[in-house]
Every structure is written in C-alpha cells, then in structure tokens.
Design a protein around this nucleic acid. Structure first.
Lengths: 147, 147
DNA sequence: CTCCATGCAAAAGGTTTGCACTCCC
DNA sequence: GGGAGTGCAAACCTTTTGCATGGAG
C-alpha cells in the first residue's frame, strides 16, 4: 500500500485541503513530479492553492522523510513519494522518464572502509542513465551527438 | 594526468586567456566548484572575465567530457574535472564537503536485467551521504547547528 | 581576415521569504 | 481561540540568451 495521506494523518500531520491535495497528487508508484507539476495537478482539484503552499508542503514532506527530493533529473527538483522502500532511479537521457528500480543487496556495502575517509555514511543515491525502449529505438545511432 | 589544460590543447580546443584561467581553476583532485566559485577564482587572476564566459566554458568542457556536472549537492551545479577516472561522490550533510571515492567493481552490474525495463543502460552516478569527521564530532546526536 | 569567443545586461526559470489573513485542532 | 497554514507578490539565486565587439588561428 502506498497511502501517503493515511500515513501522514497517522503521524498527526495537520491536515488542510491544500495539504491533502498535494499528498494525493504525489501518491503512487513511479511518481517523480516537479513542484510546478504538483502545482498544476493540485490546481485542477483546488484552484485556490498557491505555489508557496506547494513548496512549503513539499519541503515539509521531504523533511518528514515521506517524500524524497531527486535533484539528478533536469534543473528542477523532483519529488518521489516512494520513500519507504529502498530504490534507485533509472533515467532516460532522451525523454527524461524516470523509473524506480530496486537493488539486489545493500548498495552501501559498495563503499569500502578505506574509501570512507572517516565519514559516517548514512545513505546512498544511485542514478542509472540510459535510453528507454522508445528513445533507444527512435535514435539508435543519430542521437544527440556530434563527433 | 591531471593536466586539464594540456589535454584541451591537444584536442585543438581554441585557447583564450579566459578559457585558460577557467581550466586552471578547475584542475586538481577533489575539486567540485560551483560556477560562481569558478568565476570568483578566475576573477582573481583575470578581472575582466565575465560570468557568461564562465558558463559557456563550463558547458563546453562538460560536453567535451572533460569535466562532469554534479547536480546532487546543493542548488547550484558543481563541476568536477576528474572525468577520466570512474569515481563516485561522498558528501557531508553538515558542511557540504565532497570527496571523490573509487569503486571496487563496476557499479553498473548492480542493476539486474530484470530491473532494466528494456532500457539501454549507459552510465551510473552514485552519491554517498554522511557526515565528515568534523561534522560528525560536532553533532554526534543533534542536528548540525552552526550558530 | 574570418569566425568564434567574450562581455554586458536583461531575461528566464526555480525556489524562498515577509506579512496579513484564514481556519484546523 | 491560538498558532500553524495559506496566498500573494516580491526577492533571490542560478543559468541562459542576444547582440556588438574583439582576438585567436
């Protein structure tokens, strides 16, 4: 289950119409919206919602650990509600599509102690880059390159 | 090896005073400057250099593959000249310090075929998060406060 | 001599902030 | 009813762009 709203309510998160709409818009799988996209979708359901509220809410959800800020795709941050299952991202260089993918083991073991420089390592973000089936077929050898 | 300027010259890159200064400022290990920091350091040596030229030059170095754009630290992109040795980043959540770390094997094997959804995977970026020795000691169980 | 690179400044995103007003708990 | 949440708009930060000038090859 991925009921973000439910989880938030259970945490005693103060609920308003705006917050509910933002949480609803974010809920789901393979959701990686920008703040602007969240605003657009939220506005469809609640025309009076403001950009500032969207940013406030997204920032709060992020610091609650209920959504993850993804900054490795495009200039604008994206917000990923799949915060309760460890996963990584697979990004298409052609169309920007982002898929959630799941690790086989703990990716943090990939960093040996000798490479930690005394850091306490608490997390790891992995972004795979490539071409999705559609973009890979559309530009097998005439992609965005110029030798 | 670490001589970015030399490499660029060898590639027939058109050389100007501005481009030389940008390349010099970027050269080295564990260098992860923002465009603004590059501009500041470049201005010390060449006061008439402009912000637009710094951006032009950084963008060009990135598309030449001579520097890597790192977007996972803070709001501004950072530019990493260590483009010729596969590596990953270790970022301190307290002070923002970035260290280059080196993988044991090929991190791309971590993504099984069953998780590729038909994508052609061409690369992977890994960012480890944690606390550096200084920040870890300063705030062992409290938030990083800098007051 | 010919382009390409540069400088300037304005504009284009994307995000944050200050403040008065609203309304959830 | 109190204080957190909201809306509005301006400020801010980062990056891009247009155009005339200048310098590398």
């Amino acid at each position: 289950m991925s009921n973000l709203l439910e989880r938030l309510r259970r945490r005693g998160w103060r609920m308003t119409a705006q917050r509910r709409v933002v949480a609803e818009v974010l809920d789901g799988e393979h959701i990686h919206l920008t703040a602007d996209e969240v605003l657009a979708r939220a506005t469809e359901r609640l025309p009076e919602i403001s950009r500032a509220t969207v940013y406030n809410t997204l920032g709060e959800l992020a610091s609650l650990g209920e959504v993850i800020e993804v900054s490795s795709v495009g200039r604008a941050k994206r917000y990923d509600p799949n915060a309760h299952r460890a996963h990584q991202h697979l990004v298409c260089a052609g169309c920007g599509t982002v898929r959630d993918v799941h690790p086989e083991g703990d990716p943090m073991v990939g960093l040996p102690d000798t490479e930690r420089f005394g850091f306490t390592v608490t997390g790891v973000e992995i972004t795979y880059r490539g071409l999705c089936p559609v973009c890979g077929a559309a530009a097998p050898e005439e992609g965005p390159e110029s030798d």
